[in-house]
Design a binder for these strands. Structure first.
Length: 490
RNA sequence: GGCGACGUAGCCAAGCGGUAAGGCGGAGCUCUGCAAAAGCUCUAUUCCCCAGUUCGAAUCUGGGCGUCGCCUCCA
């Protein structure tokens, strides 16, 4: 079994066969930081993060490039409205985006090229396109002549006749054909501009990806990815630019992620129906968001709702507690061979699912199945074996099993600042706290100790009082055979 | 209007010719002095509708109905 992926260009699931194996080149269209990133961006980059992790797992040496289109009409407009430079607008949104990617455990790409850092390569490429008869200089910029590229429309399944219906030239555009698109836009007064042989201006959308992917990875790319909404015109235009110059295919495998819907509609900048990703991450667990996306097929549209993210949060908690239990299971000598075989069968099913066009939904289901059988595996001495597999599997899909949904490891984040003094004022008569300087952990431990003493003495009134007091400040106790544990529920 | 995707339990969702994965929720139960956010069990005779192909269809074909996307900036 080997990895199969759906190729948009051929509309079929195909074996993944990198041309220079074990080296793999992967270019994904990244962010245009003209506005705050939203959950839709997160879905796309989360998927490619998992694909990249899996390719690395399979032994490929992946070079992953995710670009930043840091110059476009919209950021210029925002900058002018706010009276700041476009680069300030871009820097602000990009910093916020990168913080969110960190919180989601999206690994950094190997290269994150900015369009404005590749103006030289862009200008050179436009020059070559003009020389080759694929582009022309007009009054307001340089345009790509779509009619000069016979295969135009192959990726998106369109032909130029269909596209021409309804197509029109916008006022102020001096192009010859309505389908032609801008490679270089001459600057108007007050707009940022770079020098070019044809006049000062800025690159049009599309050419930056052709130039940067060529500069960093060359042709053909093993994988070129992005959201479904980029198929047309963005990727179609990238193909027209790149293939007109290099003859062969720009990429062998075109991978597109399904869009995120919000209230049944596409989440997008233009519709304005989105919450900034950074705000959403303040309200919901980042790993639960990752699990939610993983539980759906990457190519299908996904409607985001509050109940769905809450469900994913519960599911994640279950996965984590099962992992904890497996890891804590006593090493009872060698695992029984039947138990070993069971763990191996889960392992096989998990990887078969990922090989099948990254069926993460089925892969996650395998993990939940294992969770159901965890107790039996522990009893058969296969606890640590199963824990090792779960650790590997969760890591592979970017879920960090050591990070809690209820962050016991960082209770200060949600506990009140005066936690210890509040507890002390409620229970000072029965529990000795080491003054206000005591840490929340130490204070909780002191209460648990006092309560267990009370339970042993059958003083259940006091034991209940201690439980309730902790509950009032946001700490829930859970008695187990191994002792009393606590979680923060504030 | 053109092109494309999708419609599976209360909700999310996999499966895409061999007799309905998984998650959430719900119900019941277990352990517990109490409490669980802990564990266990159950939870679709059926896959939008209608016709057809087939020994057999959620899966294929044709026709409806509905939702969404692209065709203009978009992950």
């Amino acid at each position: 079994m080997s990895l199969q992926l759906y190729n948009t260009r051929t509309r079929a699931v195909e074996p993944f066969a990198p041309v220079r194996a074990p080296d793999v080149t992967m270019y994904v269209c990244g962010l245009t930081p003209s506005a705050e990133a939203h959950l839709g961006h997160a879905r796309s980059f989360l998927f490619f993060d998992v694909l990249r992790r899996y390719l690395v797992h399979l032994g490929y040496r992946v070079t992953y490039v995710r670009n930043v289109t840091d110059i476009d009409d919209r950021s210029i407009a925002t900058a002018q409205a706010e009276g700041v430079s476009f680069s300030a607008v871009v820097a602000r949104h990009l910093a916020s985006f990168n913080r969110s990617m960190d919180r989601l455990h999206v690994l950094e790409p190997d290269h994150e090229p900015h369009a404005t850092a590749y103006i030289g390569q862009i200008v050179a490429m436009i020059g070559s396109l003009i020389d080759g008869g694929h582009a022309y200089v007009a009054a307001d910029g340089v345009y790509y002549a779509v009619g000069s590229f016979a295969c135009y429309g192959a990726l998106s399944g369109r032909n130029t006749d269909e596209l021409l219906i309804g197509a029109r030239i916008a006022p102020g555009e001096d192009k010859r054909d309505p389908l032609d698109f801008a490679l270089w836009k001459f600057a108007k007064a007050g707009e940022p501009a770079w020098a070019s042989p044809w006049g000062a201006g800025r690159p049009g959308w599309h050419i930056e990806c052709s130039a940067m992917s060529h500069a960093l990875l060359g042709e053909p790319l093993d994988i070129h990815g992005g959201g479904f909404d980029l198929i047309f015109p963005h990727h179609e235009n990238e193909i027209a630019q790149t293939e007109a110059l290099y003859g062969g295919p720009m990429a062998n495998m075109w991978v597109h992620g399904g869009l995120l819907l919000f209230d049944g509609k596409k989440m997008s900048k233009s519709l304005g129906n989105f919450e900034p990703l950074s705000d959403l991450l303040d309200r919901h667990d980042a790993q639960a968001i990752r699990l939610l996306f993983l539980q759906a097929g990457y190519r299908k549209p996904l409607n985001f709702t509050e109940p769905s993210i809450e469900g994913a949060t519960s599911g994640l908690r279950r996965l984590q507690s099962a992992y904890d239990a497996l890891r804590a299971a006593p090493a009872a000598g060698a695992a029984q061979s039947s138990a070993r075989a069971v763990v191996e069968s889960y392992e096989r099913r998990f990887f078969v699912a990922l090989d099948d066009d990254m069926n993460t939904s089925a892969a996650v289901a395998v993990l939940f199945d294992l969770t159901s059988e965890a107790r039996a595996l522990e009893d058969a001495g296969a606890g640590s074996l199963a824990a090792a597999f779960m650790h590997e599997a969760l890591g592979l899909i970017g879920l960090d099993p050591s990070q809690r949904v209820h962050p016991n490891d960082d209770p200060h984040r949600i506990l009140h600042a005066d936690f210890v003094s509040r507890l002390s004022s409620m229970l000072g008569d029965v529990v000795r706290f080491n003054g206000a300087a005591a840490s929340p952990e130490a204070a909780i431990a002191a209460v648990i100790k006092a309560r267990n003493r009370a339970r042993l003495a059958k003083d259940f009134r006091l034991a209940d009082r201690l439980r309730i007091a902790l509950s009032d400040v946001g700490v829930h106790l859970h008695d187990t055979k191994e002792g009393t544990t606590w979680t923060v529920v504030a």
